[in-house]
């Protein structure tokens, strides 16, 4: 009887430990929604586009959001604007040189200033942003929304269990800092690039 009680207590403790363990969210979205939008002020009209080739994983524990870590990677040749010639220039050697620098990445080291309210966590994401072979430390304000049990519903398979993590953020970088056509055409294309992030990662449960 005593052994049975101990075994039951161990089982409950193990289930508790498992449910509190960080989950790994995969940001290669099966619905193709994930993208980072970029915006540069320019002569005639702003240059706006998207980068949709998002991959990477984030380890997130709803019970301890401050311990969140992960890496998000963007395929450079997925950067697209409405004008085909501009897209070619953007991916070309004077701008991002996509053949030589196939990836843009953000490696999340930690979250600072974490505040959680319900499903939402706001924080400052501290990590390393790598663009065109240049890596810099950056701090980005982000909002994380944890959607428990929403994975299956989103892919129209409610029988599939799992959670979703939505990450939103907006920040500005200076293209000269990353060797993107530094000091050139600044009278025509603003040196500042505004980046808007809205991506979702899934953690299916078997």
């Amino acid at each position: 009887m005593k052994n049975h009680v101990i075994a039951t207590l161990f089982s409950i403790a193990a289930i508790g430990a498992l449910s509190a363990a960080p989950q790994t969210f995969d940001f290669k979205d099966p619905k193709g929604v994930n993208a980072i939008q970029f915006h540069l002020d320019s002569v005639l009209e702003p240059i706006s586009g998207t980068a949709s080739g998002i991959t990477g994983t984030v380890s997130f524990d709803p019970a301890n959001p401050a311990a969140t870590t992960g890496k998000i990677v963007v395929a450079t040749n997925s950067l697209t604007v409405s004008n085909a010639m501009m897209t070619d220039h953007l991916r070309g050697d004077r701008w991002l040189n996509a053949p030589v620098n196939p990836e843009i990445s953000f490696e999340l080291a930690k979250l600072d200033n974490v505040k959680t309210s319900g499903n939402d966590t706001t924080a400052t994401a501290v990590g390393k942003l790598s663009i065109k072979g240049v890596t810099k430390d950056v701090s980005v304000p982000v909002k994380l929304t944890y959607l428990a049990g929403a994975f299956g519903k989103r892919i129209n398979k409610p029988e599939v269990g799992g959670d979703l993590l939505v990450v939103r953020g907006e920040f500005t970088i200076n293209r000269s800092d990353y060797g993107i056509n530094p000091g050139q055409m600044e009278d025509k294309v603003n040196p500042e690039i505004k980046l808007t992030l809205a991506i979702v990662g899934g953690a299916p449960k078997a």
Binding site: E45, T50, T80, S82, N83, T145, L164, V166, I199
Partner: peptide, 25 residues
């Protein structure tokens, strides 16, 4: 259109479950 010519036109869409507004062309 008073901007540059476009070969593809961005169309905003909404992912209902996550509330993410995304762009297709």
């Amino acid at each position: 259109h008073t901007g540059w010519s476009m070969n593809q036109v961005p169309v905003k869409q909404l992912d209902e479950i996550t509330g993410i507004e995304f762009v297709t062309y």
